[in-house]
Nucleic acid binder design. Structure first.
Lengths: 139, 139
DNA sequence: CTTGAAAGATGCAAGCTTGAATTATTCTGA
DNA sequence: TCAGAATAATTCAAGCTTGCATCTTTCAAG
């Protein structure tokens, strides 16, 4: 039976590993986004725009504050990749919609992101186990 | 056998989970650091200062750029928690050493960080499996 | 020895992120 | 109905992070 001390040390190491992997993933997104002239957060936003959604929904998917989503969407809108439309049923909200250019660039980005994913080192079964564990951890 | 498409979708979801957990860990550090009057990066630096080390080594442990480590160490030094000493064998480098106050505050922080860790939801065996998987992934 | 490449640390500009207001709109209960 | 709470989005200031340029010191090949 490991000591309490060794236990917490292992836990801290585990945190380090999680952060390291997250960092690697972020680096991957940054690299691929740069190839199409976008910053990492801009690329993340484009990736998460799987369909029309509100600012808040996008912020949730990007795991960032709504005010930050505003900042990033401003950039994408200025580039003509996104449109901010009035929400059909809630006048408080905006509905984000990709333009034609936005759609095209998103397809390109997705294709780039698939290549050499940081998780490629794990088999499909391993990814399944990892998924289950993380699901339980973040609960 | 899952389609290529479903496969990449699962992979993307997995990335989201990793980021989510990393975020939760960061939030935990931010919260505990705040209780002793430090920001999250300052707390991380204090936690990683397990002994005398160079700026570069600290940056490596914190997974950040050396220039950022400079910024953060400036703050901790101004607070009297850290000292920058000349490195004993390499005149290019600095040796970071905790002051008495620094040691005391670090102990307090470690004790706080142990409580209700985001990974507490996982059993010890599960943490072991997770550790092995992440190790393979970040390789 | 000496010259050039590399490594440690820092300064700075630019961009990212957060948290705390602010405004507009919707929801809820009396 | 209507006042108050809650929600969507935005603005702004302050702090964080990165990348690049610079300086100093060390290393390595000739």
């Amino acid at each position: 039976m490991p000591s309490r001390e060794a236990e917490t040390a292992a836990e801290r190491e585990l945190c380090g590993l999680v952060n390291g992997l997250a960092r690697q993933i972020a680096e991957h997104v940054r690299d691929r986004s740069a190839r199409i002239g976008l910053t990492a957060p801009q690329g993340t936003a484009l990736r998460e725009l799987t369909g029309p959604m509100t600012m808040r929904e996008l912020a949730g998917r990007m795991s960032c504050e709504p005010s930050n989503a505003t900042f990033i969407v401003d950039k994408l809108e200025a580039r003509g990749l996104i449109e901010r439309r009035p929400h059909p049923t809630d006048r408080r909200a905006k509905q984000l919609v990709l333009t034609g250019d936005g759609e095209a660039l998103r397809d390109k980005l997705i294709a780039l992101l698939v290549q050499e994913s940081p998780l490629a080192g794990l088999s499909e079964t391993e990814q399944g186990v990892l998924h289950a564990l993380l699901d339980r951890a973040v609960r």
